[in-house]
Design a protein around this nucleic acid. Structure first.
Lengths: 187, 187
DNA sequence: GGAATGAGTTGACGCTGTCAACCCCGGCCG
DNA sequence: CGGCCGGGGTTGACAGCGTCAACTCATTCC
């Protein structure tokens, strides 16, 4: 089979997210882009937010893959830095989709989505653990430390994406913020 | 004069944000709550997003006030911690409004809004500077360090609010994350 | 062969943001 | 004093949206 309609709908929604943001993703536009009637999506998703949830789940897996790829680096510090760079690049290339993942209040509490998000975090957490055994990051509860890294990187991304902070040099510059974080954590 | 219609509209929008989230803020509901016709808001705001922008600007000033109040603490470390606790509490009490401030892509690029956001950051930055001179935080570019603190706290809040991360203990717990941050930064 | 099922369609509904036109009252100028 | 005029408010309309209901059609399975 050529690609199921469901998969096409998800891809179309992702594309519209990239080109027109959240507001650009109307069920009718998604349907038209796939070449079906305005009501066809309801055969595959409960409602609009379920479709967005499916996009998010797919993107969480994509993100996890990026983290796993970064794990290929031989030096653990480099691996973690590369993972961070990967999310940052992803967020810059697909801001609306990134925001959908972490900052969207409307997504359904789907267990699949939750699991994908958790797996994503876990992968990053493993990189952090490697850094700890290599002495690149301090000894501390690994989950907590990973949460801190996750939060800092996400926060920096979100602030830059929002653009509400720009105006001061050094603020809203993700790369500088993340670099400083690793610098200070090393002690 | 009793409170201008404009101020009432802003207050009504904020209340609706609290009770029904972003989606609950419809121009018509706001108007009805104030007791005017569904088109009256257009006499005071260009469009829906301009109204939300006004809510955001007001909330940024409120947040700044919280930071300034926290500055009253005698010990600089306690002051910064109190400031963080204040934002966290605010975010928990008004999640939709907090998200509007930092994670909403739809707000207008209004100079007043931008200035309010910047002033807010600046106030926090002063607390960080005090911590540095007191040796509670490491020597480093103050703006950069403030940006890191800002990003970490905001990131932790956003992750908890999103709830996408829950499931792992220690992840998504803002207070623990922030405590760990200050702990590690001290060295 | 007939029932059932899943994907897709058309048509309608109510709600939303927004535009246009009208109204009405207070202050200002001649 | 009369006229005007502008800001705040109103009603009415419009298109676009998510969603529901009913219908069609092909496939599959007893």
């Amino acid at each position: 089979m050529a690609e199921t309609t469901k998969a096409q709908l998800i891809a179309a929604a992702a594309a519209l997210l990239d080109s027109g943001g959240q507001a650009g993703v109307t069920l009718r536009a998604v349907a038209e882009r796939v070449g079906v009637s305005h009501n066809a999506p309801y055969r595959h998703f409960d409602d609009r937010s379920a479709l967005l949830g499916a996009v998010a789940e797919e993107d969480f897996r994509r993100l996890q893959q990026l983290f796993e790829d970064a794990g290929g680096e031989t030096e653990s510090g480099a691996a973690l830095r590369q993972a961070c760079a990967a999310v940052i690049g992803y967020a810059r290339r697909h801001p609306a989709r990134y925001r959908l993942l972490f900052s969207d209040p409307g997504l359904p509490p789907d267990p699949g989505l939750r699991e994908a998000a958790f797996a994503c975090f876990l992968t990053l957490s493993r990189l952090v653990a490697r850094c700890q055994t290599d002495g690149v990051l301090p000894e501390a509860d690994t989950v907590g430390l990973s949460g801190l890294v996750y939060a800092a990187v996400h926060g920096a991304i979100d602030l830059e994406l929002g653009g509400r902070a720009s105006g001061a040099k050094g603020l809203g510059d993700i790369d500088a913020t993340v670099a400083l974080l690793f610098d200070l954590l090393r002690g």
